[in-house]
Every structure is written in structure tokens, then in C-alpha cells.
């Protein structure tokens, strides 16, 4: 090979050559989604009763991240046809031609197996089974079956993103309890208003790709109503840990104010000046604000729960 360069000649490599870079392989794992998964998984692990060696806890979180990344990678392999027509995704490694589809699939399948086996060996096999279940759910139920068939795809996909707190908890305790199930429900009901707020001003891509996102299928007016509905369900769910005595008043105060804040933003989205079809006449400012607040809402809620847990464990509050 170096001979060819030294000769200054051209090399017969262009078609089959692997042009990928490290960052392309990292991009396959959807690192931004991974951030949320790592965060909620770590909170599930932190608030679980019992003790886990810090290194083993860190490896458990790594496994959750790798499992989610692997599922995202297989998702990119499967969705490469629609990724190639959406502005947001056209530069991803597969549609851009930097990674071959079958290489991406192999990478995703290998990482799935690796993360599940490592989780099982390092913590316990119940956690490994939950991690495997979350990957299978995301790949088969969400990606392959329902994403392209129903406008409720975000609701169904939300469940996949809601597994990590349960997995983190099970990694410590070996079993499921009420609190991780409530955390699952919080992420599950948080996801639709979060993504639908975004989709209100960014649904052109989905329309082009034929993905039945709610604003594309049912219109903006219905999407605004659904955002309100899910936020109304989410607010009391956030208070449930305190009401059931599973968290203290510090968390309760945060949950109350964050829930009220999200309700206020959902109300603004619902009442924003709009035309007959529900399309914003104000540049979707309310939806953009609701999307931003939703990020703060989830981060605040889970951080408050961890803080509350530590303060109670230290005997500083009851």
C-alpha cells in the first residue's frame, strides 16, 4: 500500500474501502439518547436500597449505556432507508455511506450480547434479563413493528427509554419494586409531551419519510391536546413517590413545582395563537419553550429524588 503512495500512483481501493472513522461508530450508538439513559439508570441505581461496589455500579451503568447504544445502532441499520430522506439524519454514517449496513448490524448485535452478558456476570442475571428485554423491545416492538405503523409510536418508544431506572435498581437489589416502576411510568408519560413539543415545529422530515408522527397524521391541534393530556397524567405521577412514603418532602417540593411548571407550558402550547389546523401563528414559541422545560423537568425530578434519598440516608431529613 505504501508503495502505491510512494509511486504517486492511484490505488484500486475506492469502492470497497472502509472510510469510517471512530466518531462514525460512536454516532451509531446515538450518544445523545445515551445521556438520558445513563442519567436515569444511574438514578435507579443510586436510590435502590442495598449496596453495590462503586466499580460494579459504574460497570452496570456502562452496560445500560452500551445496551441502549446497541439498540440505537440496530435501529439505524433498520431505518437506513428513511434516514436517507430526512434532513436531520441524512448525514448519519450508514446513509452517508461511511459504514456498511451489515457492519452496523453486526456491531449492534455484538454490543447487545456483550452488554447483557457483562451485566449478568457483574451484577445479576435478573438485571441482564431486563437489559435484554429493553433491547429486544426497542428493536422488535418499536423499530420494526410499530414505529412506521402508528402515530402513537412515540408513546411506544417511550417505554424503551423508560427501562433504565428499573435496570439500575435491579442491578443493586436483584428484583423490582414500586419505586422503579413509578420511575418507569414517569419517563413513559414524560416522553410523548417532550417529543411532540419538538415535532410541532420539526415534523417536515417525518412527513417526507412517511413516518406517522402525530402532527403529520392527526394535525397540530390534536397534538397540542395530546401534549396537555399526557402532562396532566404526568404531574400527579411525579408526586407519587412522596405520597406513598417512598421519597421525602424535598423531592415532593421539586415534583410539585416542576409538575406545575410543565402543566403551565403544556397549557401555553394548547392556547398558543394558531390557525384552524392548529399551526402556530407565533413561531411555535410555546412548543419550543415546552420542549426546553421538559428537559429541565426530567433532570430536576430525578436529581431531586437522588438528593432526597441521600439526605434521608444521612438522617438530615425524614
Amino acid at each position: 500500500m505504501s508503495d502505491l503512495i510512494e509511486r504517486g500512483a492511484t490505488a484500486p481501493l475506492a469502492v470497497s474501502a472502509d472510510w469510517s472513522e471512530l466518531r462514525d461508530w460512536i454516532a451509531l450508538l446515538k450518544p445523545r439518547v445515551m445521556t438520558l439513559v445513563v442519567f436515569t439508570g444511574a438514578v435507579g441505581l443510586a436510590v435502590a436500597p442495598g449496596h453495590i461496589h462503586p466499580l460494579l455500579g459504574a460497570v452496570a451503568i456502562l452496560c445500560i449505556a452500551l445496551g441502549a447504544g446497541a439498540a440505537g445502532c440496530i435501529n439505524m441499520w433498520y431505518d437506513r432507508d428513511i434516514d436517507a430522506v430526512m434532513r436531520r439524519t441524512i448525514r448519519r454514517p450508514i446513509p452517508a455511506g461511511r459504514i456498511a449496513p451489515e457492519a452496523a448490524l453486526a456491531f449492534g448485535v455484538f454490543l447487545s450480547g456483550f452488554s447483557v452478558v457483562l451485566m449478568g456476570l457483574v451484577t445479576n442475571w435478573v438485571a441482564g434479563a431486563w437489559l435484554a428485554g429493553s433491547i429486544l423491545y426497542y428493536v422488535f416492538i418499536y423499530t420494526m413493528w410499530l414505529k412506521r405503523r402508528t402515530p402513537q409510536n412515540i408513546v411506544i418508544g417511550g417505554a424503551a427509554g423508560a427501562f433504565p431506572p428499573i435496570i439500575g435498581w435491579v442491578a443493586v437489589t436483584g428484583g423490582v419494586d414500586v419505586l422503579p416502576l413509578i420511575l418507569f411510568a414517569i419517563v413513559f408519560f414524560w416522553t410523548p409531551p417532550h417529543f411532540w413539543s419538538l415535532s410541532l415545529w420539526a415534523h417536515d422530515d417525518y412527513q417526507r419519510a412517511g413516518v406517522p408522527m402525530l402532527p403529520v397524521v392527526s394535525g397540530a391541534r390534536e397534538t397540542r391536546r395530546q401534549i396537555m393530556l399526557y402532562t396532566v397524567l404526568l404531574a400527579p405521577l411525579g408526586l407519587l413517590p412522596t405520597l406513598l412514603g417512598l421519597a421525602g418532602w424535598v423531592y415532593g417540593a421539586f415534583a410539585l413545582s416542576l409538575g406545575a411548571g410543565f402543566l403551565f407550558h403544556a397549557w401555553r402550547v394548547l392556547r398558543e395563537p394558531q390557525d384552524a389546523a392548529g399551526v402556530s401563528l407565533a413561531g411555535d414559541t410555546a412548543a419550543r419553550a415546552a420542549f426546553r422545560f421538559s428537559l429541565l423537568h426530567l433532570a430536576g425530578l430525578f436529581t431531586a429524588l437522588t438528593l432526597d434519598h441521600w439526605l434521608r440516608a444521612a438522617g438530615m431529613i425524614h
Binding site: I5, T10, A11, A17
Partner: peptide
Amino acid sequence: PPTMTKEEEAAF
């Protein structure tokens, strides 16, 4: 077969 220029080869 398709070929690479010297610069492409170096980048590869």
C-alpha cells in the same frame, strides 16, 4: 477498478 488519488489514499 476505481482508483484513489494520492490525497485520498493518504486520508484513507
